[in-house]
Design a protein around this nucleic acid. Structure first.
Length: 452
DNA sequence: TCTGGGGTCCTAGGACCC
DNA sequence: TCTGGGGTCCTAGGACCC
């Protein structure tokens, strides 16, 4: 553990609501609730004025309205929040190159990465106050709360202690005693289920937790959660601040005003969601192999079905077709309140400056035979696309870039096949045209054999 | 006036492979 | 008078976070 409180956690106060109050002066000083405004909406953020009435994040909007009928209820404006967030994060990066955003309104900063050493509590307090002033200036008056300590855990907990607009720096060496009197729920990762289990074992405070031995905790909570909680309880937290964490999945979901049971309607919605997922993948220059469909029943039980392709795709039509099949296999019971489509097992094959966003968007959906005489700079192979090689036969585009295309010679009948890389203008390689509009890029195999 | 939407990480069982 | 053990991949579900 480091010897100085050089990890900062910055948390913008009531961020969405504060942005609305900033942009609409008539709302300042008044209760503002941002979130879903429909019958099944929930609260994203309540201004401090609204919190006085007991309105909280994740509460149903209906309950919030009953507690605070005179508040302003606003749908979120994510683009605006993103803009302010970018400006605020830029201020943090001016302070240190090592910044780890956790969401639009939260980030860790590692001061050690900026070369600052020998930091006293006073030094860090001054740095935090300067940062708050800079954030206020660049964001048009938003306030932040800052916590600092020798680890992420301590910084995160500290930032919560003096909200809003506060600074709390925990001196090095005082971490365990700092945590001891607190409820176990302050530890990130301890939610309702874990709290209940711990309470049954007589554990309420971190001090109680510090008395338990690791094996007992692992028996109660499982190996990963048990051992990590054991370490965190004694403030042994070596997790590094990491910038640029890789995206692991991309998904779209929607809760309906009333439960839906009509498969034709749901199929149309599923197709639209698949296209939105594909668009977002392409924008991020990502593609993925596992398509998941999520359904939520009237009683809130949630089911997922997934299927993994042989190679990554970002093609909306491929995602849509797999999602349709998974939806067909899903039991809708008496109707579903939510449908979602997602893609995971992501690869960044397409991260290549050969493809600009525009080129890729225009090249990807084309469904034509490319003859051997095509121009030497021919591009437009995309993951999941079926191709034919004169020598090796039928295969899938596994990835492409830098003038090369990687093909996996595998079909539903013959998995798994070899993987080979060719030049994009190899005359022996052609795209395969399918009969029927939705028949490009067959989704290949499930793990346990051919799926179709 | 029940419970959003976007994620992350973990677990457990079965298939499969060596 | 059977049939181990370990590793990996896939699927499904659950807890948790903002």
């Amino acid at each position: 553990m480091r010897g100085e409180p050089s990890v900062l956690h910055v948390d913008l106060d009531a961020f969405f609501a504060a942005v609305e109050q900033r942009d609409k002066p008539s709302l300042r000083g008044k209760p503002v609730v941002v979130g879903g405004v429909g019958v099944r909406g929930v609260v994203s953020t309540a201004s401090y004025e609204a919190r006085k009435y007991g309105v909280r994040s994740a509460m149903s909007t209906a309950e919030a309205r009953s507690r605070c009928p005179h508040a302003a209820y606003l749908g979120p404006r994510f683009e605006v929040y993103r803009q302010s967030s970018r400006a605020v994060m830029a201020e943090m990066r001016a302070l240190s190159p090592l910044v780890e955003p956790l969401s639009l309104d939260e980030a860790f900063i590692d001061l050690a990465a900026s070369g600052l050493t020998g930091l006293t509590v006073e030094d860090v307090t001054a740095i935090a106050n300067d940062l708050k002033a800079a954030i206020r200036k660049v964001s048009g008056g938003l306030t932040a709360s800052v916590g600092a300590g020798t680890s992420k855990l301590i910084a995160k907990i500290a930032s919560d202690l003096d909200k809003p607009d506060g600074v709390v720096v925990v001196p090095a060496g005082t971490e365990a005693e700092f945590l001891a009197p607190m409820q176990v729920t302050v530890i990130p990762g301890v939610g309702p289920a874990t709290t209940q289990r711990l309470n049954l074992a007589g554990v309420r405070t971190v001090a109680d937790l510090q008395q338990l031995d690791e094996d007992e905790l692992i028996r109660q909570l499982g190996s990963a959660h048990g051992s990590s909680l054991y370490r965190l309880a004694v403030a042994a937290d070596e997790r590094p601040v990491v910038s640029d964490r890789e995206t692991k999945s991309v998904s779209v979901e929607d809760t309906f005003e009333t439960d839906l049971i009509d498969r034709a309607v749901l199929t149309v919605i599923s197709d639209r969601m698949a296209h939105r997922v594909g668009e977002r993948l392409r924008k991020a220059q990502l593609s993925g192999r596992t398509v998941t469909v999520k359904t939520r029943m009237h009683d809130f039980t949630t089911h997922t079905r997934s299927s993994t392709l042989a190679g990554p795709t970002d093609d909306p039509r491929v995602i849509a077709r797999v999602a349709r099949r998974l939806l067909e296999e899903s039991d809708l019971g008496g109707g579903i309140r939510l449908l979602g489509v997602g893609v995971s097992s992501l690869a960044d094959w397409i991260q290549d400056d050969l493809f600009t966003e525009e080129e890729f968007a225009s090249a990807a959906p084309v469904d034509v035979v490319e003859l051997p005489s095509r121009p030497r700079d021919q591009r437009g192979y995309h993951p999941g696309q079926d191709v034919e090689h004169a020598e090796h036969g039928r295969g899938w585009v596994w990835g492409s870039g830098r003038g090369r295309v990687t093909v996996r010679f595998e079909t539903a009948e013959t998995p798994p096949g070899p993987v080979r890389t060719f030049s994009v203008d190899d005359p022996a390689l052609t795209k395969v045209v399918h009969a029927g509009a939705d028949a490009d890029g067959e989704p290949v195999t499930d793990h346990n054999g051919p799926s179709e």
